[in-house]
Simulated assay, not measured.
Amino acid sequence: MAISGMTGFGRAEGALGAWTWAAEARSVNGRNLEVRFRGPPGFDSLERAAREGAQGRFQRGQVTVGVQAKKSEAASAVRINLEQLERYLEASRPLVEAGRAAPPSMDGLLALRGVIEADDGEQDPEAMAALEAAMAASIGGALDGLLAARRQEGGQLLGVLQGQLDRIAELVTHAGGQAAGQPTAIKARFEARMKELAGEAASEERIVQEAAAMAVKADVREELDRLAGHVEAARGLLAADGAVGRRLDFLTQEFMREANTLCSKSALPALTATGLDLKATIEQFREQVQNVE
């Protein structure tokens, strides 16, 4: 796969013993790789699995990994918190003795917060390790799904970017043909201006010399050559493996720099219009590059 995007989603589910869970991984654009994790209490080792898994698959983007786990109620026993129950009884005793309240009933006491607690018992270390390993595998599956989604996005971006590069190359070629007429246009414009100011005293030799100097300053062949080189470099990056988004982003800055110089040197309205079309296409290319890993 040539390029990868930075947005996508992946999900994997699992079950072991009394536990069921779902792992989800999603990502959005980011200049660097940033991994965030949300998991169930008591499974702290899963964060490391999420971070290492993301770092092994991605180089850029904001990646969020979440795990939701649930243990079946049938697997959990309940116990009465006698200490908490005693606190409630002690607090109510003065009111009962003073006749200000009726003696508390058992069902009322059991309904009070903290009196009945879930008692999962002591988790066997080997069983806990197996459970965490299974959850970590699901995290890996979710990250694999995210990777596939990002590669799919990259495939869609590839066609768009290649089309924009073709358009840039076409505009560069068109600008080259237009730029060939710049010396003649500059000479005619300078000659008309000189005759307007000096009349017949303006010598042809002086006009040719000054027009030649102006044409040299307005020569855009270097800019066009560099733009053509940037197009080939961008095509090479799109065909390369790995994360190329940063290099493409830098290359678009070079594209825009040359296009700006081309417009500033233009002495022909048609060439200026082509330069503006070129800048607009480069900006569209830059916007799409922001989605490339």
Rank of each mutant, 00 (worst) to 15 (best):
G154M: 07
A175L: 05
H174L: 15
A175Q: 12
G181M: 02
R193T: 05
L157D: 06
L157N: 01
Q182I: 12
L157R: 02
A188L: 03
A175V: 13
V160M: 07
L157I: 05
G181T: 09
E191Q: 04
R193F: 08
D166T: 11
G154S: 05
A179N: 11
A169D: 14
A185S: 09
G181R: 13
G155K: 10
A192T: 13
R189F: 08
Q156E: 15
V172Q: 07
A192I: 04
L161H: 07
I168F: 06
A192S: 08
F190V: 12
T173I: 09
I186G: 04
A175C: 15
R167K: 10
L157C: 03
P183W: 02
T184S: 08
I168G: 02
H174D: 14
Q182M: 10
E191T: 04
T184W: 02
Q162N: 14
D166W: 02
A192H: 02
A175T: 06
K187Q: 14
P183E: 03
Q182K: 00
A169Y: 10
P183R: 01
Q178L: 15
H174E: 14
A179W: 13
L161R: 05
G163M: 05
G155C: 06
I186D: 07
G159I: 03
L157A: 07
E153K: 03
E153H: 04
Q152F: 12
G176R: 15
A192V: 00
G155M: 11
A179D: 13
Q156A: 13
Q152P: 08
D166M: 03
K187N: 00
L158G: 08
E170P: 01
L171K: 08
R193N: 01
Q152D: 15
E153V: 07
G163A: 05
A188I: 00
H174W: 10
G176Y: 10
L158T: 03
Q156D: 12
D166H: 12
T184Y: 00
Q178G: 12
A185R: 13
A188Y: 02
L158R: 13
A179C: 11
L165Q: 10
G177K: 09
T173G: 10
T173K: 14
Q152N: 13
Q164V: 01
G177L: 11
V172W: 07
L161T: 05
L161Q: 08
V160R: 05
A169T: 07
Q156T: 07
P183K: 06
E191F: 02
E191K: 08
L158M: 09
H174Q: 14
G176H: 11
Q162L: 11
L158V: 02
A169W: 11
H174G: 13
L161P: 10
G159K: 07
G163F: 01
Q178D: 04
A188R: 10
A175K: 13
R167F: 00
Q156R: 13
L157S: 02
T184E: 14
G177W: 09
